[in-house]
Amino acid sequence: MSEILLETRNLTREFPFGKKDTVHAVTDVSLQIRAGETLALVGESGCGKSTLGRMMIRMLRPTSGEVFFRGTEITSLNAGAFRPLRRQMQMIFQDPYASLDPRMSVRSIIAEPLRTWKLCENRQAETERVQELMAAVGVPAEMINRYPHQLSGGQRQRVGIARAIAADPALIVCDEPVSALDVSVQNQILNLLRRLQKERNLTYLFISHDLSVVRHISDRVAVMFLGKVCETGETETVCGDPRHPYTRFLLDAAPVPDPHRRRSGERLLQGEMPSPVNVPSGCRFHTRCPFATEECAKTDPPMRMIGGRGVACHHPEKAGTCGR
């Protein structure tokens, strides 16, 4: 097995809310990512995926907990000591339009990290490197002087990827990189991400709420509910035979592109996500869980190894019977 590239221990982030309340965005998350693999982070909108991803690459300070990158704890490093590691970590965003500066040309967007890290001797070398990167992500060479608004959504996402790989990082946090794209473009970008991963030995944290995308791209998956990881393990183990009822509901909710296999309503998770300001007692899923017992309302289930994956549930044997 390859080395552990990044590890979080008891990572927690809170935001103040109003005068006296607190948003519990991420609570006590401990995860490992191995070099060269893709770890997917899935869960409903607002469950804390982006907050966790940003803390992992020190774009956001945790309230408590630690992040180790190749064995070095990075949240406590001073800016000077962190700087060489900064280059190792990049991010790709959901909305390439909002993340690319509208006043910068494709050339300057991709060249920016090359300049920051002084990776090119002169302008000639820089131009060549930008052209190489454009070719690697499949943006036609003649678009080098265009601006973001003159590109299609797929092309913008490719430019964002070129910028992310420019300084040869080890880890890329991909925050819903294909959620805004049409399926044929989505597939092109997913193929591109996979090819780049092989060629450059990249490690991905891949954030998504689309489980069919996650099943395709990731080696391991962590399912989050309201700031906590509720199930984690090999993607096929977790998605093929989920043990947390919430994972089961997520899998069942995804619309199957087959009119002969219509899902009926009774397997639908009802109600809303509880507020991260007033987190339910005990297991935070208990207010929506069809199997909740008194114990679930009282004690928060610890993460346990069951059937080859970690699951935080008092009744993991029940997930298999969900809505069946």
């Binding site: 909108s45 689309d210 509901f249 997520l250 909710a253 619309p255 639908l268």
Partner: peptide, 11 residues
């Protein structure tokens, strides 16, 4: 919307 809310809206 995310998949769970999407499924509810389709319903």
């Amino acid at each position: 919307l995310d998949v769970i809310v999407e499924a509810q809206i389709l319903q």
